[in-house]
């Protein structure tokens, strides 16, 4: 029952983004150009999220203004690199590869017993520090590639892959990213494969999270978009333990979705009562 209900909700989520591409393309063009920039930069992992961002960015800015970086580590899957290359070939983009092995290994050579988590986070932050550095070279704004499912579940590294100047896919659940990938004719191999952060060999997101993206998206949609209570979601046929786990993740990861908390001592405190839109500075 849970599976059927989740699939029904996911189908609804997919059809709901039938008209989203022009909005996302307009968002990228408008929010980049008003900053005085014409170019975008981001990490191209070979996964579906960054592939969708690449297609959207080319539509918004033209291929001469889009700079995806492929940044493998020595243990990264060759298949991911191949998928990233396929995106570049399909969009007529030049390959720019920066291997992060030496800098990551140099750091961990003096760190004993680093866990998978620490290593994964470090790699994500190395990649983002490279993107921000290269953004100066290409005079480009860094684009985020984290989708709404990841942002809500906190499935990402703070100041690593979660960092960006603009994120065109942050309000799309994974299911919706897949639907948009279909609309944009992202290569089949990328759309079909199991999502993976490629943090270690044969890792998949769903194994690591402990639930499927379909279940997660359906529950997140009901809890967040539809504002249902946990009991009401369970009433729709979802396992209580899973709903509880999803809700806990949303709450526990709220800090990743906010700017750092500042101690208020003055009469005007940034983020509290000094309230300007980002676009003020443009």
């Amino acid at each position: 029952m849970q599976r059927d209900r989740a699939m029904d909700i996911c189908r609804k989520l997919e059809t709901s983004v039938a008209g989203a591409v022009p909005v996302l393309v307009g968002f990228l063009r408008d929010e980049i150009q008003k900053t005085g920039h014409r170019n975008a930069i981001f990490g191209l992992s070979g996964g579906i999220d960054s592939a969708v961002v690449a297609y959207l960015a080319v539509l918004a800015l033209g291929k001469d203004h889009v700079y995806p970086l492929i940044m493998p580590y020595r243990e990264s899957s060759q298949a991911s690199v191949n998928d990233a290359r396929q995106v570049l070939a399909d969009l007529g983009l030049q390959e720019r590869m920066i291997d992060i092995t030496s800098q990551v290994d140099a750091y961990f050579s003096c760190q004993e017993c680093a866990t998978h988590l620490r290593r994964g986070n470090k790699m994500a932050r190395e990649r983002m520090s490279i993107i921000y550095d290269q953004s100066v070279v290409y005079q480009a704004l860094p684009l985020g590639t984290s989708n709404k499912t990841e942002l809500l579940l906190g499935y990402g590294t703070q100041f690593g892959d979660l960092a960006s100047a603009l994120n065109p896919v942050g309000d799309l659940f994974k299911t919706q990213v897949r639907a948009i990938a279909g609309q944009l004719s992202v290569p089949e191999s990328i759309r079909r494969k199991a999502p993976s952060a490629d943090l270690w060999q044969d890792q998949t997101d769903e194994d690591e999270l402990g639930f499927s993206y379909e279940d997660a998206d359906a529950i997140l949609h009901l809890l967040v978009d539809e504002r249902l209570t946990e009991d009401e979601v369970v009433g729709q046929g979802f396992q209580g333990e899973l709903v509880d786990q999803v809700m806990r993740r949303i709450r526990q990861n709220q800090y990743k979705r906010r700017m750092p908390v500042i101690a208020k001592v003055s009469s005007r405190t940034i983020g509290i009562d000094f309230r300007y839109p980002r676009d003020w500075g443009m």
Partner: peptide, 11 residues
């Protein structure tokens, strides 16, 4: 503002 994107290709 455009919200609640629907199946129709308009918001």
């Amino acid at each position: 503002p455009g919200r609640a994107l629907g199946g129709d290709p308009h918001s």
